[in-house]
Each structure stands twice: as structure tokens, then as C-alpha cells.
């Protein structure tokens, strides 16, 4: 009896361990290859360069190096034609396989495993904007470290900066132009749909319906700034209070937050087709929204909007336009 108990516990424990490791989600396949295919035109020979990074630190590095590990900006880099040895962060590779040929995904990303990075023997490490100085110092022992803009929404700044680092200003120009073109095209579409001045409400669900805060989710920037859609004053008010994003809106008052167009941001789609979960569909507050009753709620996959890299731009706009189409269908 006793022995059986021990064996049982052991088996249980092994099962749990393998369970922990097995937590991986699958990605869907879709192609957004409208991004201009650019070549990495840098010469092969070593060329040392001293560069002042966004924190004002001077970094000396070989600007023609191919041995790069990027903890941020993977989508920008591959659009430039640069193929880092390994990348991490919330990098989406599915649908962009040709861009990520020969690029490894780092296993450890919280925030990094120095040994794993070292094992690639990089000559340059690109990190995210807000990395703590402690960690930057740690990585500097491996190779020169340059932080990239991660929070900036401005492609001229983001891409121009990367162009400067590698002397690929022409590629940067092409990509900035591309971003501008994509935006113009979407604006024209919005114009064509006749929803230019409509108000848009975006909701998400986590133990109650709430409005996703501006900074964390790129779709806010795209919808309200690039596409120039309007927010309801009451939603603006909600977001002004910094504590609010954690607090759900009362089901009774939810309909006051409904604009002309209602979008649901699916936080847990993780590559699957985004949808409104049943738990929300049966929510009494949600059911009082006019858009819900008329079955015209647009749904977007919020996980697509965690990175602002130019590579994903078309897909991000497409997702939003698709949601708008659903939301304005008669």
C-alpha cells in the first residue's frame, strides 16, 4: 500500500512536469507577403562604427556584422533584409516563413538567458527600449548592445534608427514609404466604406467587459490615430484614470459605452481565428448592446497587435478593416 502510494505520487509528479513543458500553442497559416522584399546590401568586410543609441550611450560595433541576436524588433529587422541569428520577444513567424528562414527563436525569454545568447557568439545584440541597465551591462560583456525603439509608433523614427545602425538608409526609406502607402490605402478604404467620422468602441473581456488601455495595444493607435476614428467621450474619461484598465465596467452601464462601431479584442486567440467566447455572448450586459443584438460586432485578434514592427503592418490593418466590415454590415 505504502509503496504503491509512493509510485503513484512519482508518476503524478512526472506527469505534471511533462504537462508544464507541453504548454505550446499552434499558429495558423496565413500569408501577408505584400511587404517589399529587401536585400541586406551591406558589404561583408568588418567596419567599426560608433553610434549614439536612444539612451544617449555611445556604442562601438561592427555595422556590417551578420552575427546578430535580437531581443526586440525582429519584424523590423527581417523586413530590412537582415537575418539575425536568433530572435525573441513576441515574434510571429507563421505566415512570414520566408522572412525568418535561418532565424532561430530563443527558448528562454524571461527576459533572456545570457548563456543561450552567448552560444550564438553574436557580434551585436539588439534589445528592447526599456531594458534595465543591469541587464544591458550583463549583455555588453558578450557583445555591443543597442536598444531599439519598441514603444515608438512612428515608423520614421523606428525604421530610420535601424537604418542608421546598419547604414541601410535606403532600405529604411523604402519601408517608411511602404508604411505610408499601406496607411493611405486603408484610409481610402475607410473613406469608401463611409465610416470616416464614426465612433468606435473596443472592448475586451477578463472577468467582466472593459476597454483596453491605449499604450499596451497597438490597435488603439491604428484605429484612433492612423485611421482617425473617434472614441466616445465617456470612453476617453474611462481611460484617463490610470487605475481603470483593471476594472470591469458594470454590466448595467455597458450600453453607455457603445459607439457606432463595436469591436471585440480577443486577447487569447493566440494565432487561432479570433472569436467572441461563449462566456461573453451569454453576458447579460453584453447582450444589451445594440450591435450585439444586430450581430454586427467586429472581432480582432489582439495578440497580433503586441508588436509594432513594420512586417506585420498589413496584417494588422487587414484585421481591423475586416472587423470594420463585419461591424458595419447591414
Amino acid at each position: 500500500m505504502k509503496k504503491h502510494g509512493v509510485i503513484f505520487l512519482l508518476v503524478l509528479c512526472v506527469a505534471f512536469m511533462s504537462f508544464l513543458g507541453a504548454c505550446k500553442t499552434e499558429d495558423k497559416k496565413e500569408n501577408y507577403e505584400t511587404v517589399p522584399i529587401l536585400e541586406d546590401v551591406r558589404p561583408e568586410e568588418e567596419k567599426m562604427n560608433t553610434f549614439t543609441d536612444l539612451n544617449g550611450n555611445e556604442v562601438t560595433y561592427n555595422m556590417n556584422t551578420r552575427r546578430i541576436v535580437a531581443l526586440s524588433g525582429a519584424g523590423d529587422l527581417v523586413a530590412f533584409g537582415i537575418r539575425p541569428l536568433a530572435v525573441s520577444g513576441s515574434t510571429t513567424t507563421s505566415g512570414y516563413e520566408s522572412f525568418f528562414k535561418g532565424v532561430d527563436l530563443l527558448d528562454y525569454n524571461t527576459p533572456f538567458n545570457a548563456e543561450e545568447i552567448l552560444s550564438y557568439k553574436p557580434e551585436l545584440i539588439l534589445v528592447y527600449q526599456n531594458m534595465e541597465q543591469d541587464n544591458i551591462d550583463k549583455l555588453t560583456k558578450i557583445a555591443p548592445v543597442i536598444p531599439l525603439y519598441r514603444e515608438s509608433f512612428d515608423f520614421e523614427v523606428r525604421l530610420g534608427y535601424i537604418g542608421e545602425i546598419f547604414g541601410l538608409e535606403e532600405n529604411a526609406e523604402t519601408l517608411i514609404e511602404y508604411a505610408e502607402q499601406v496607411k493611405e490605402a486603408q484610409l481610402a478604404k475607410i473613406e469608401g466604406m463611409g465610416i470616416k467620422d464614426k465612433t468606435v468602441s473596443i472592448f475586451y473581456y477578463a472577468q467582466g467587459v472593459s476597454i483596453p488601455p491605449t499604450d499596451s495595444w497597438y490597435f488603439n493607435k491604428i484605429i484612433y490615430d492612423y485611421l482617425g476614428m473617434k472614441r466616445l467621450p465617456i470612453a476617453e474619461e474611462f481611460l484617463e484614470n490610470a487605475d481603470n484598465p483593471f476594472t470591469p465596467i458594470s454590466n448595467e452601464s455597458l450600453r453607455n459605452y457603445e459607439g457606432d462601431i463595436v469591436i471585440y479584442a480577443d486577447l487569447s486567440a493566440a494565432g487561432l481565428e479570433p472569436e467572441i467566447p461563449e462566456i461573453l455572448q451569454t453576458n447579460p450586459g453584453w447582450k444589451t448592446l445594440t450591435a450585439v443584438r444586430e450581430n454586427r460586432v467586429g472581432v480582432i485578434d489582439a495578440t497580433l497587435y503586441t508588436e509594432k514592427d513594420v512586417l506585420y503592418l498589413q496584417a494588422q490593418y487587414d484585421g481591423i478593416i475586416k472587423a470594420f466590415e463585419k461591424a458595419t454590415a447591414k
Binding site: L20, A206, Q207, F246, S250, N251, N283
Partner: peptide, 22 residues
Amino acid sequence: GIVLKEGLTSEMLKYTAGSSAN
């Protein structure tokens, strides 16, 4: 372990807060 591996920390926290609102 799962929550940290999958980056669900804030959703998890909202659940543990507890609410009968829905």
C-alpha cells in the same frame, strides 16, 4: 508555472480577484 510560461499573469490575477458580476 503555466501562467508564467504562457504570459497570462494579468488575466490570472483578475480571476483570482473574484467577482460575481457576470
